[in-house]
Write a protein that binds this DNA or RNA. Sequence first.
DNA 1: GTAAATAAGTTTAGAATATAAACCAAATTA
DNA 2: TAATTTGGTTTATATTCTAAACTTATTTAC
Lengths: 94, 94
Amino acid sequence: MFKPLDPLLHSELRLAVMSLLISTEEAEFPYIKEQTGATAGNLSVQIDKLSAAGYIEVEKTFKGKRPCTLCRITPTGLKAFEEYIDALKSYLEK
Amino acid sequence: MFKPLDPLLHSELRLAVMSLLISTEEAEFPYIKEQTGATAGNLSVQIDKLSAAGYIEVEKTFKGKRPCTLCRITPTGLKAFEEYIDALKSYLEK
DNA sequence: GTAAATAAGTTTAGAATATAAACCAAATTA
DNA sequence: TAATTTGGTTTATATTCTAAACTTATTTAC
């Protein structure tokens, strides 16, 4: 009847991050922060969780002399996101 | 960009309860329990929350001699559910 | 040159939430 | 009449979220 919802994705901020990364292919920490309106601390924690699950890849590079954290969705993450949407439908469709 | 998700609805079990009530008009506690697979304790707590928010109505009646808890969605609840779906779309559509 | 402000995050402690175990009362069955 | 089942509620713990506090490095202002 109701399919279980991946708890990692069933979180407002993590879902927003994944949603962003699906459409942008690659995004920098400050950009994600701005788009989601999250605090840096919260975003840092949630990015860690997505990364630990293998849903996103985090690359720490430099942009000139300043550090730059780049995030990218992985195939695993994309699959999980699609399955999450599919599961959600079991709650939304009559 | 991303619309906020009503925290009361952004919960697997509460969302399942609301989803059920939308399609069934009225449902008994044991039926909801069976359909959602929730434990009675968890279900009781979540029903209380939905009820406290005015999203559902809970009527305690009797079925013969046994107590019978009936749940029904309210217009407020229906509106909240629709708005939740609308907000969700901002995360799912590219 | 150095003091203050900004950038880019991370750590972590407290608040909020979820969940199941323990409990209760009444009715049924053995 | 003792044990079991039904129909829940309470509550204690575990989990999760979130923002405040902190770190390190870089500009900018004096």
